[in-house]
Amino acid sequence: MIRPAVTSLILVAVAVALIYRAGAPPSAGNGNSNGSPSTITVLCAAGLSPVMGELTDVFESTAAEDSSIKIDVSYKGSAQLVALHRVAQSGDLLAAADTFYHQPLIDSGLCSPADIVAYQTPCLIVATDAAATGSIDETLLSGKFRTSIPKRGHAAIGRLVASIEGTEKYNSFSRLATVTRETVSQVAGDVDQGVVDIGIAWNTTSLQFENTKSLTVDAWQGYRSSIGVSVLSSSKNVAAAEAFKEFLGGQRAKGILKKHGYLVSDGPGHQGSVEAQP
């Protein structure tokens, strides 16, 4: 018993050392980590991960120089984020793919009204070398192309496009699809890997996937989803959460968002959320 016990203790020590070593974030340009920085957690739509990664890096290294706030980001699909937050009720900020997802949490007092920070527009996503394809009916209903369609109930993009084209027609898209997906990233991945010819995604998505490009759809012009940020009522560090939210609405953040293809506007939103009908 002594030998297995000793072996186990040694292994546990090694494991704890590894975890500890991993937990110490390698200094990636933040030389101001003296003292204990307050950490806030952002629940963020997985599709936003590239831009959110850059936003947090910039915030941590510059904007928060004095207050030294550290941002942790938990990435999941928006619907999942919200559903799990009802259970977990922990975290400081919510940034879903559309303010639509914030609404139930706002209604039940779990988060503050969303401040809209950016918009994205629906479009078709195709391989970089694909030729022009034609109308929506020709591409998605003809059966000539392999398609990847985001699920209406799972992905914000699915909701939006279904509200434009009508539920019945969207169901036809799904029925004729090679595959239907829960997230826009999965759709883009399908196109990127050449599994399908065409998919429905955001204008920002193709920028993340090297082998893809966006095709705007005339009928979808003027529609967009609004990405908002809410402070969660579970936040134990509201000041820090507000600081990051403020940063996300600021000029510096707008520049970064634009670079990633998001639309930012200073005036009041035109179309609002995905629920808006033309």
């Binding site: 292994l11 090694v14 494991a15 590894l18 070593r21 991993a22 974030p25």
Partner: peptide, 13 residues
């Protein structure tokens, strides 16, 4: 790299 270390540590533990 953190993820690799964390994976090794947590799985061992």
């Amino acid at each position: 790299q953190q993820a690799i270390l964390l994976s090794l540590g947590t799985s061992l533990l």
